[in-house]
Computed example of a mutant assay.
Amino acid sequence: MLTRKQHELICFINDRLDETGVSPSFEEMKEALDLKSKSGVHRLISALEERQFIRRLPNRARALEVLKMPERGAKPVSKVVTLPEASPANVRPLPNPANDVIEIPLHGRIAAGVPIEAFEGASMLAVPAALLGGGEHYALEVAGDSMVEAGILDGDYALIKRQEVARDGEIVVALIDNSEATLKFFRREGAMVRLDPANRAYDPQRYTPAQVRVQGKLAGLLRRYD
């Protein structure tokens, strides 16, 4: 049995497919169901997929297929949970569910070799919430092989927590001379900043502190297998 929102969503998708032959966008689904963010749409679609009401068509954007509709006369359920009263001292924030998905900005490509220009505009990347902790995050697509010995490969998506400070040994996004960015281990070496690769074929890069601005540290990785 579907929840009310799941029922509303599959009906909306089915109606749109009947009318146009194209499934609605996540933004259209968010507005139709009066949801606050597209992460709620991701959760509903995943739930409908698990119950085999819909399936995503591979290698096609915005491609959903309705496999079956709820039985006639079946009423959507409303989830009502009664919780005991709690004092403020006992209230704790709930962790994100393991299958929760959120969207973070995807800012172009970043070099894991020689520095290249980063932040080439922005789109959005859906990321499992369990991969991210607190704070603000964004993603960059990795270009190059200088971090392969740290398990960071060309084409990976680096999930970055925004911050302007770093400790020795952390993997950071370093903006060099306010124009180019690179992904490297951050270390201090006397009066200099050293950015270390994780590939023996590459040499460390040394800069004055004024040349380097930390843009964030690595929080996680996403990898696609085609």
Results as ranks from 00 to 15, higher is better:
1 M>T: 14
1 M>S: 14
2 L>D: 01
7 H>G: 02
8 E>S: 09
8 E>D: 13
9 L>Q: 06
15 D>Y: 01
16 R>Y: 00
19 E>R: 12
21 G>Y: 06
21 G>D: 05
22 V>R: 15
34 D>F: 10
36 K>C: 07
37 S>M: 08
39 S>N: 10
40 G>H: 12
46 S>C: 01
54 I>T: 03
57 L>R: 11
60 R>H: 11
60 R>P: 00
60 R>M: 12
62 R>N: 14
62 R>Q: 13
64 L>C: 02
71 E>G: 13
71 E>R: 15
76 P>E: 09
81 V>F: 06
82 T>K: 11
83 L>Y: 13
89 A>W: 04
96 N>V: 07
98 A>Y: 12
98 A>H: 12
99 N>H: 14
99 N>S: 13
105 P>G: 05
105 P>A: 07
105 P>N: 10
112 A>N: 00
112 A>E: 03
113 G>T: 05
118 A>L: 02
119 F>C: 04
131 L>C: 08
133 G>A: 08
140 L>I: 03
148 V>N: 06
151 G>A: 07
151 G>K: 07
163 Q>H: 07
167 R>P: 00
173 V>F: 03
175 L>D: 09
178 N>I: 00
178 N>R: 15
180 E>P: 00
181 A>F: 02
183 L>C: 03
184 K>N: 05
185 F>Q: 04
190 G>D: 09
191 A>P: 02
194 R>F: 02
199 N>D: 09
200 R>P: 01
202 Y>C: 02
206 R>T: 14
206 R>G: 00
207 Y>M: 06
208 T>S: 13
209 P>M: 06
213 R>H: 12
224 R>C: 04
226 D>A: 11
